[in-house]
Amino acid sequence: MAHAKHFRDDDPVLSRVREICLEFPDCDEKVSHGRPAFFTTKVFTYYGGSVKVDGEWRQHDQSVMVLPDESERRALLEDARVFVPAYLGPSGWIGVDLPSADAETGWDEVAELIDASYRLTAGNRRVARLDQP
């Protein structure tokens, strides 16, 4: 069964996420469960997410879902922009609502979260390539 598409190809926020993700070694993009997913052998970032609140699905269309280091997860969850996404949340993933595409602030932090997620999922060889000058 095909999943409904939960994004627009011309979304400028998605374009910013693509710019960040596709810079990582061996990164590729696929659509998984109706959302863009960025991966090497494992997914390290999803674009968009959802949570179930009082029996209703609440979409976070302009967000990323990433896997943070476990030691940082609790502090991240205190941020109002951060949510525990359906399905992936119990495995340690978080969702982060994104700034606008032309925002002056916030994107450095998004890039750091994506970097951390990549480092946890990409494997030692890819991470070593990432750290080469």
Score class of each variant (00 low, 15 high):
residue 82 V to Y: 05
residue 54 D to S: 12
residue 57 W to A: 06
residue 70 E to M: 03
residue 61 D to F: 08
residue 77 L to S: 10
residue 26 D to E: 15
residue 27 C to P: 02
residue 75 A to R: 14
residue 65 M to G: 06
residue 64 V to R: 01
residue 64 V to L: 12
residue 89 G to C: 02
residue 48 G to L: 03
residue 20 I to F: 11
residue 80 A to L: 13
residue 88 L to G: 05
residue 77 L to T: 11
residue 78 E to M: 13
residue 46 Y to T: 10
residue 55 G to L: 07
residue 82 V to C: 09
residue 80 A to P: 13
residue 54 D to K: 14
residue 29 E to G: 05
residue 53 V to G: 08
residue 48 G to N: 07
residue 68 P to W: 04
residue 83 F to Q: 01
residue 22 L to P: 07
residue 48 G to H: 06
residue 31 V to C: 03
residue 41 T to R: 15
residue 45 T to V: 14
residue 90 P to G: 00
residue 95 G to R: 02
residue 86 A to L: 13
residue 27 C to E: 04
residue 22 L to Q: 14
residue 79 D to G: 01
residue 57 W to F: 12
residue 94 I to V: 12
residue 36 P to S: 09
residue 61 D to I: 02
residue 73 R to D: 02
residue 41 T to L: 08
residue 29 E to Q: 10
residue 57 W to H: 11
residue 40 T to F: 05
residue 53 V to Y: 05
residue 93 W to P: 03
residue 31 V to S: 05
residue 49 G to R: 06
residue 72 E to G: 09
residue 48 G to S: 02
residue 83 F to Y: 12
residue 48 G to D: 00
residue 22 L to F: 13
residue 71 S to A: 14
residue 44 F to M: 10
residue 97 D to L: 03
residue 61 D to R: 14
residue 85 P to V: 10
residue 30 K to Q: 13
residue 26 D to S: 15
residue 20 I to V: 13
residue 47 Y to D: 01
residue 21 C to R: 03
residue 24 F to L: 14
